[in-house]
Design a protein around this nucleic acid. Sequence first.
DNA 1: ATCTCGATAGTCT
DNA 2: GACTATCGAGATC
Length: 217
Amino acid sequence: LNNEALPRSFYRQGAIVAARSLLNCILLHKTEEGLVSGRISETEAYTPDDPASHSYRGKTARNATMFGPPGHAYVYFTYGMYHCLNAVTSEENDAEAVLIRAVDPLEGWELMSRRRGLPEVEIARLLEAKAEARTRERWGRTLTGGPGKLCQAYALTLADNGLDLTSGKGLWIAPPAAGSGASPYHEICVSPRIGIRHSMELLQRYTLRGDPYVSKK
DNA sequence: ATCTCGATAGTCT
DNA sequence: GACTATCGAGATC
């Protein structure tokens, strides 16, 4: 498994291209608690000419990271309770970003379950039944099947806003796994983004055909 | 499976 | 004062 961070050049592609390229890449976060990782399964693209983008109305304290250099994490707080993780995917001041909406959990199931607040007895039961594909898929969606859930499972907060994703330590994104661990999903599906107004106007949500690790059908 | 609704607080008008 | 790049519970089919 090549867990080296994607280079800065990857993040210069713009949100539309990068959102597609990020599918099947591996999101990793290492803390004192341990390592968690997952295969990116759902993304959305946001560009400054789009009224739904935080960067549409110009730079503010909240969205400043989006206006910064490529390859950094833009983390924001929303609905009074949740955080969302984006990757900045444009040159300084261009303010394009990709929202990471879901991953397929790879490493750190127990840690993610604990951070998500699952009861210990439930965690023990799930670890027992992990061999069953059905259980694993459902549990996976519970852990990281949505942008808010994913940040909770990864323990990402505003403290992580602005982190450099190309350092290969702490928080980073690696290329898709190759060989036996490679993803079986390849065909990219396009759909309306979630939770925004006029969602039908721009189809900039990206998933992989057949991939069960998504936030919504 | 699909829906409606409440929680909760930062941001912007 | 309104809105929000969300989630889970509870109701209903």
